[in-house]
Design a binder for these strands. Structure first.
Lengths: 171, 171
DNA sequence: ATCCGGTCAAACCAAATGGATAAACCTGCC
DNA sequence: GGCAGGTTTATCCATTTGGTTTGACCGGAT
């Protein structure tokens, strides 16, 4: 593995362990087992490297999610997706960090917008994608209170009923 | 307004304009019209101030959301909630930043977990909360592609039908 | 063997950063 | 007036930071 690849790996590791704000060029270089001057050589700047790392992580996550988006009952599918919060935790954290940094980097925002369109296509709508990323937020903050696949499937099913009730109440 | 309050306001402003990673003590002090030594005096450290600011923002957002979570048809309610992405954009950005920083601050995570429980109660379940925060992510990254209230209500309703189809396909 | 482009690392640097210090500044009270 | 409390500011400081420079290194082509 060349230094360039090692740096991206190290950056991904630092992003999940310390987050963008707390990651220094020396942290990344140490994690990668490389001199920190290599960052300037290969990427020009710390920010550029971090964005590269985030983009790569987001793409990996996209793939992992789309693999689990099809097959089985809704409950099973939701559970499989929810399980990725644990199995792919670093990628999900990167995804979250990417969303934050996208507010300050048009390039990153563009990449995320693309991944989002793919996500909508893979999951079959804006709402399933919203549910998935929203559940991720809940799971990261308080896994004990986050719902499982059965609960999600149940609530989604109950939603149309609730809607109906709300409509009639409104009349 | 005392310096302490001014600092929290300035911190909130910096958090939305530059994000946690790019906000320095001097940025905050300038935004607040205050000497940056006041941060040490009132909060002890930059991090402590930023966390205070995030917590305050999250609480403001909680309130704004719960005000709009009731009344009207589902479509109207969803639209009212989606509208807050624009009207309360700074607070939503703070919420997102808070979720990221919660990974590195147990205190902040605790506060967010509380707000999350309130959110579930106010919106009537884990899934509505997930939908709302997931939509926020979509809207921040690509407002043009994010769905409106009608679309969300429609997809939510269609969800149970889709579930049914999936179940029968599975058999 | 030598040259050469690309890669790497040790040392260096200026600037920025978070925080500490200590002196001024109020404001209410005796 | 003058004292005492908390508050605010100007200034200082050590450290960290991102980035650059310079020379070594390496593999392949000549």
């Amino acid at each position: 593995m060349g230094n360039r690849e090692a740096l991206i790996q190290g950056a991904k590791q630092c992003l999940t362990e310390r987050g963008w704000a707390r990651t220094t060029v020396r942290d990344i270089a140490t994690a990668a087992g490389v001199n920190h001057a290599a960052i300037g050589y290969h990427f020009g700047s710390r920010e550029s490297l971090l964005i590269h790392a985030l983009v790569e992580a987001v793409e990996e996550l996209s793939e992992a999610v789309s693999e689990r988006a099809r097959g089985g009952s809704p409950e099973e599918r939701w559970q499989a997706l929810i399980d990725t919060f644990g199995t792919h935790r670093p990628l999900w954290i990167a995804q979250l960090e990417a969303a934050v940094q996208a507010e300050h980097s048009p390039e990153l925002r563009e990449r995320l917008a693309l991944a989002q369109r793919q996500g909508r296509a893979g999951l079959g709508g804006s709402v399933p994608l919203a549910v998935l990323s929203g559940l991720m937020l809940q799971w990261l903050i308080d896994p004990a209170e986050a719902p499982d696949g059965a609960q999600v499937a149940l609530e989604l099913h109950a939603q149309s009923t609730a809607d109906f009730h709300a409509r009639s109440r409104e009349a």
